[in-house]
Simulated assay, not measured.
Amino acid sequence: MTKYLVVGAGLFGATFAREAAKRGHEVKVIEKRSHLAGNVYTKEICGIQVHQYGAHIFHTSNKEVWRYVHQFAEFNRYTNAPVANYNGEIYNLPFNMNTFNKLWGVVTPKEAMAKIEEQKAVLGDKEPENLEEQAISLIGTDIYQKLVKGYTEKQWGRKATELPAFIIKRLPVRLTYDNNYFNDLYQGIPIGGYTQIVEKMLAHENITVETGVDFFDKKDQYLVNYDKVIFTGMIDQFFNYELGELEYRSLRFETEILDEHNHQGNAVVNYTDTVTPYTRIIEHKHFEYGKGDDDKTVITREYPTDWERGDEPYYPINNDRNNNMYQEYKKYAAKNASNVIFGGRLGQYKYYNMDQVIVAALETVKEEFEG
């Protein structure tokens, strides 16, 4: 029996902890926050499951992952169909025939493609040198100006002309009247929220859990007392930023209870202009088809922010500089922390969707226990 310490009670840590415990190992899970489930944490307010750290829609084409999460919750048939608000004009996302009809009055896919090609021609044969040029080369000037530019600049905190082209490698263009944002075979929201999933994952006789515990308060002691550590925090922080500081983006959430039955008519509305300071408003009751109090609704405004030490890091900035530094940290970890496994978005410095986090955790389990 191996003694494991899992640092972080998000999806990666909880999946690994459960699978290790099932195999007879002793697992302790510590979590810095006062609750389980990491960024997928949901809390009931006014009978509504509120996504405390931004909208989380589970989607995957991996049948095994879909089956795996269904051990812990029943999922509804929610389909992600966000809309964009550009100075009061409403457009469907992803870019599809409904979007093109609203923009240009076109009706057929052939007409839509002709309009996009006409607008892309503004670049001529120039190779895109920044995000703005890359976006125009993919979807033309109108869609870029109304639906990409403002949102992207708020998301990254920089002008589009200052952002590298690779950030937008592709943009979805659908020549159908289909507002389903994802292409995955399976998607939905767990009925009763996400927190229950992690709670059930960790409900095992071989697992003990402590919240409100900071790993760094007793780092040296933990490393001595446990055979293996599964660390899902920032890899650069683990090593006290010895090789440099990786970059992250942070988020600020402003949640409000309103005396209304229905505030915006959709779960997610993106604000794509440059004046509105937030990127989107989430109305949580629409994730579960209007459950909750009839005369109440809960909305959350989401503000991207620069990250500084001490802030909550939400996603990595995967440019060449940071990716190269992460690879150096990975080599450094192999030499100097052989009993530590780094996982999740922050430990592996990678933007993961929820299903990808579970896949990564299960792959780590396979490597650890099946060699």
Rank of each mutant, 00 (worst) to 15 (best):
D311C: 09
N323T: 11
Y314W: 07
M325C: 02
E312M: 06
K335H: 04
E308P: 10
Y326S: 00
Y326W: 06
A334P: 06
W307P: 01
E308K: 08
G310M: 05
D311Q: 12
G310D: 04
P316E: 00
T305W: 00
Q327S: 15
E328Y: 12
Q327P: 09
A333Q: 07
K331C: 04
T305D: 02
D320P: 03
N322R: 11
N322T: 12
D320I: 08
N324H: 14
Y332N: 00
Y326D: 00
Q327V: 10
R321H: 08
A334L: 15
W307L: 06
N323P: 08
Q327K: 14
A334G: 11
Y326R: 04
N318H: 13
N324Y: 15
E308H: 14
N324K: 14
Y314D: 02
W307S: 03
Y329E: 07
W307E: 03
R309I: 15
N323I: 14
A333N: 06
N322L: 12
K330L: 14
A333Y: 09
I317E: 01
Y329W: 08
T305L: 05
N322P: 14
Y332I: 02
Y315Q: 07
A334Q: 15
D320A: 15
R321L: 05
E328N: 11
W307F: 12
Y332S: 03
P313T: 03
G310N: 09
Y329D: 10
N324G: 12
G310T: 06
Y329K: 10
P316W: 03
D320H: 13
Y329N: 03
A334M: 13
P316L: 02
Y329L: 04
Y329S: 09
N318C: 14
W307Y: 15
A333H: 06
K335E: 08
D306P: 00
E312L: 12
K331Y: 07
N318P: 10
N319D: 14
Y332M: 00
A334N: 11
N336S: 02
T305R: 08
E312C: 09
K330S: 14
P313M: 05
N324Q: 10
E328W: 12
N319C: 10
Y329Q: 05
E328M: 14
